[in-house]
């Protein structure tokens, strides 16, 4: 049984890269598949380069690229739907919330219904969904949790503000817990992340400082 040398495997790997197979899990599969095909031909008595020629005839580039497209399309289908739902609901909910505030200021009827609907949609559907999308998009565990915590504490603050406007009980608990999570968990995680990922360290620190000052000002508003 022929078994390809490491260097020959690398040659085939480079070929797949040249063809634009960038999605790692698929490239692993295709590389092993291609190696098996070449080894099969070599077992029939061909040299490595003859075997590669033979295998590549059966393994044509268009089909491979199509394979990657189909695979990625199938895998991201759910995410695309999630993004669409988040975007559409986000726009509708924001419009309702902004409309609600405007109606309330003008003492027009229907303000409260719009506010409750808009802000509940934002905090219960849109923000958690956006957090989930970012969670799935990242491969790094810490940025996954940073995104999720950020969106969820944001959603809690939204909900708390709604409760405060509607004079419902429990608004202080929601607002304080949202602020605490945002200040003591999200901000440190976010600061470390942006500090590590940016070239301009000063800017990263300044950005976090501005967010902290904004939170401090808001904190002052909601005793």
């Amino acid at each position: 049984m022929a078994r390809l040398e490491d260097q020959q495997v690398e040659e085939l790997h480079d070929q797949l890269l040249r063809w634009g197979i960038a999605y790692d899990p698929l490239r692993d599969d295709l590389l092993d598949h291609l190696c098996c095909m070449v080894e099969y031909e070599m077992n029939q008595g061909q040299t490595f380069s003859e075997a590669v020629q033979e295998a590549l005839v059966k393994f044509d580039i268009y089909q491979i690229q199509e394979t990657q497209e189909i695979t990625l399309h199938l895998l991201t289908q759910k995410q695309r739907i999630m993004k669409k739902v988040a975007a559409i609901t986000g726009i509708i909910a924001s419009a309702l919330a902004i409309g609600g505030v405007l109606f309330k200021m003008m003492h027009w009827p229907g303000a409260e219904v719009m506010l409750v609907l808009g802000v509940s949609l934002l905090s219960v559907v849109v923000l958690p969904l956006m957090g989930l999308i970012e969670f799935k998009q990242s491969n790094v565990l810490r940025s996954q949790y940073t995104a999720l915590i950020g969106y969820i504490s944001g959603a809690t603050l939204f909900l708390g503000t709604l409760f405060r406007i509607m004079h419902w009980p429990g608004s202080s608990v929601l607002i304080v817990s949202g602020f605490v999570v945002l200040t003591f968990i999200f901000i440190p995680l976010y600061t470390v992340k942006s500090y590590q990922n940016t070239d301009n360290k000063m800017l990263a620190i300044a950005r976090s400082a501005i967010i902290i000052s904004a939170i401090a000002i808001l904190w002052g508003l909601f005793p």
Partner: peptide, 15 residues
């Protein structure tokens, strides 16, 4: 079965 049909299916079933 060609690889063009097989791997998309395997990855989808895995997902």
């Amino acid at each position: 079965i060609t690889e063009g049909a097989l791997y998309p299916l395997l990855h989808k079933l895995q997902a």
